[in-house]
Computed example of a mutant assay.
Amino acid sequence: MAKPNKKLPERVVKVVCTGCGAKLFKYHKNGKGALVKCFKERVAVNYCENACHCPSCHQMFAREQIIRGAAAYKIIGGKAKID
């Protein structure tokens, strides 16, 4: 499997918690599809103190995984959305 493209996409989106609406991070997203996984190297600003947990309601929104040889957050369905 190929690794994700090193060149960061220009489109930056805000990822928020669906439960409380708190900012989780800003992410360089490629494409127009749903948010399924977020590669750590593409995270521009991280607002979370604990990895994969919302800073406000402390709900777990993702799991840390290795995808295509790179570290990533695998988003749990319905826990985070693009704002």
Rank of each mutant, 00 (worst) to 15 (best):
P55F: 08
H58C: 09
K79I: 08
G21M: 06
K79A: 11
V12H: 02
G78Y: 08
D83R: 06
H53Y: 14
Y27L: 07
A72G: 02
A44T: 09
V13M: 08
V36T: 10
K29S: 05
A44W: 10
E41H: 15
K81I: 00
F25W: 03
G78T: 04
K81P: 02
I82Q: 09
V43S: 03
K29T: 04
G31M: 11
I66V: 15
Y47I: 00
C52A: 14
C38M: 14
F25R: 04
V43R: 01
Y47L: 07
E49Q: 11
C48K: 04
S56T: 11
A62E: 00
A2D: 04
K14E: 08
A22T: 12
L8S: 09
K74S: 13
C48H: 10
K3A: 12
V12G: 10
I67A: 10
G19Y: 11
C17V: 00
N50H: 12
A72I: 01
A34Q: 07
K74H: 08
M60V: 03
A70L: 05
A71Q: 13
A22Q: 13
L35K: 08
N5G: 05
A44E: 15
G33I: 01
E49M: 04
V16I: 15
C17P: 12
V12Q: 13
V12F: 01
G69R: 10
N50Y: 00
I75R: 01
C17D: 02
P9Q: 04
K14A: 08
P55R: 08
Q59F: 00
L35E: 01
K23F: 13
F39S: 05
C52E: 08
K79V: 07
F39V: 09
C54R: 01
F39P: 03
R11K: 15
A71W: 02
V45C: 01
D83P: 05
G33Y: 06
C17Q: 03
Q65N: 07
C57P: 08
G33R: 01
V16K: 10
D83Q: 11
F61N: 05
K81E: 14
A80M: 04
K32M: 00
A51W: 07
G69H: 10
G33P: 02
C57Q: 09
K37I: 14
K40G: 08
G69Q: 10
K81Q: 12
P55Q: 06
V45R: 08
S56F: 01
H53G: 04
C48D: 11
V36N: 00
Y73Q: 07
I67M: 06
M60C: 11
V13E: 15
F25M: 13
